[in-house]
Simulated assay, not measured.
Amino acid sequence: MAKPWMRWILVLQCVLLLAMFAGMVANKFGLAPFRPAFMTFYYGFQGVIVVTGLTVLACGLIWWLRWHAEKRFALWTLALGAAPVVVVFALVGKGLGVPAIHNISTDLENPPKFIAAYELRSSEQNSLDAPSDAVKDLQRGHYADLAPLILPEEPDAVFARALATVADLGWTLIAAHPEQGLIEAYDETLFFGFKDDVAIRIQAQAQGTRVDVRSVSRVGRSDLGANAKRIAKFQKALEK
């Protein structure tokens, strides 16, 4: 029979995983404010890392002393801990090397403005104000390829296509302002349900139509590169 302490380690690992899951679900479905939901996830994740590390050390002792009954519990504890650790670090790893900013625009001098999206943000969330000069410099240095999209069609046709593209990408439409050539929407991440607001501005040019896009995260200092990728994805879809 396995020793009680090995059983309790497995139980503790399961409790910590449930805390992570509860934090994600609470934030994604609005069951709790962001901070307590995120901290529940965060401390659960930190606990999983600690328990998994201790289990690695315990495995050495178990194999050395040939405690065969404990091997099954140790392997289950390792497997349950390794899965979320690998997933989280893989997601965070995608954003390594990008600046800690969350307000990205194809027009830094006159970024598209939000109107209705203000009503969806609390005072504790990131501001929808224009990015600071420091943020602009960081964007220019890391996302130099982001630029307005110029299309040959008339603004009305581009506006209709932009609305259709928002729907095709699975974004949620906040408001459409045809008279201002402005579309507001938000995109929600699958993991944790982070919401980022998007403003799409469509303006007539001497030849064709100019489309500017701005994407701003509601929470977090760094978007891990998500906003720039979102803008590029929208532009690519709109060009098709």
Score class of each variant (00 low, 15 high):
58 A>T: 11
98 V>L: 13
237 A>R: 15
44 G>H: 08
164 A>D: 14
109 E>F: 00
44 G>A: 08
6 M>A: 09
137 D>A: 12
59 C>W: 13
31 L>A: 11
239 E>C: 10
38 F>I: 05
65 L>W: 09
8 W>F: 05
60 G>V: 12
183 I>R: 00
143 Y>K: 03
132 S>M: 02
106 T>C: 03
81 G>D: 11
94 K>M: 14
25 V>S: 05
37 A>Y: 01
162 A>L: 05
30 G>V: 03
30 G>Q: 08
206 A>I: 12
15 V>R: 04
93 G>C: 14
185 A>F: 08
85 V>D: 12
205 Q>N: 06
111 P>V: 00
22 A>S: 13
227 N>W: 05
3 K>T: 12
226 A>I: 11
239 E>P: 06
126 N>L: 00
127 S>A: 08
100 A>V: 11
26 A>C: 09
36 P>V: 03
200 I>S: 03
1 M>N: 15
41 F>I: 03
158 V>S: 00
207 Q>D: 13
6 M>D: 13
64 W>L: 08
96 L>Y: 07
191 F>Y: 15
102 H>R: 01
167 A>Q: 11
107 D>H: 07
217 S>W: 09
73 F>N: 12
42 Y>S: 09
148 P>C: 01
221 R>G: 10
179 E>I: 08
50 V>Y: 08
110 N>T: 07
184 E>F: 08
138 L>F: 07
66 R>K: 15
226 A>S: 12
154 E>H: 11
198 V>L: 13
237 A>N: 06
133 D>Y: 00
173 L>C: 10
118 Y>H: 13
203 Q>C: 06
131 P>V: 01
56 V>C: 12
199 A>R: 09
125 Q>E: 10
172 T>H: 02
202 I>T: 08
32 A>Y: 00
16 L>W: 07
75 L>M: 15
90 A>Q: 11
189 T>Y: 07
102 H>C: 02
141 G>I: 06
235 Q>V: 03
129 D>I: 07
44 G>I: 09
1 M>P: 15
93 G>P: 15
215 S>Q: 13
60 G>T: 10
209 T>R: 10
176 A>G: 06
199 A>V: 04
49 I>R: 12
36 P>A: 01
211 V>L: 02
157 A>L: 13
82 A>L: 15
109 E>L: 10
46 Q>A: 08
17 L>N: 15
151 L>S: 02
114 F>Q: 10
231 I>V: 07
75 L>Q: 14
105 S>W: 01
224 L>I: 07
12 L>H: 03
137 D>N: 08
220 G>D: 01
92 V>S: 12
192 F>G: 08
34 F>I: 04
60 G>K: 13
123 S>I: 07
70 E>S: 15
179 E>A: 14
32 A>D: 04
9 I>R: 15
32 A>H: 00
177 H>T: 00
198 V>C: 12
113 K>N: 04
137 D>Y: 00
3 K>H: 14
173 L>W: 05
227 N>M: 07
89 F>I: 07
40 T>R: 12
33 P>T: 03
37 A>E: 01
98 V>A: 12
151 L>C: 01
132 S>I: 01
159 F>Q: 07
141 G>T: 04
130 A>N: 04
200 I>V: 11
117 A>M: 05
229 K>T: 06
48 V>G: 09
164 A>I: 02
125 Q>L: 00
12 L>C: 05
128 L>M: 00
126 N>H: 02
87 V>G: 09
69 A>T: 13
17 L>A: 02
216 V>G: 08
12 L>P: 06
185 A>S: 13
212 D>Y: 03
125 Q>I: 00
97 G>S: 06
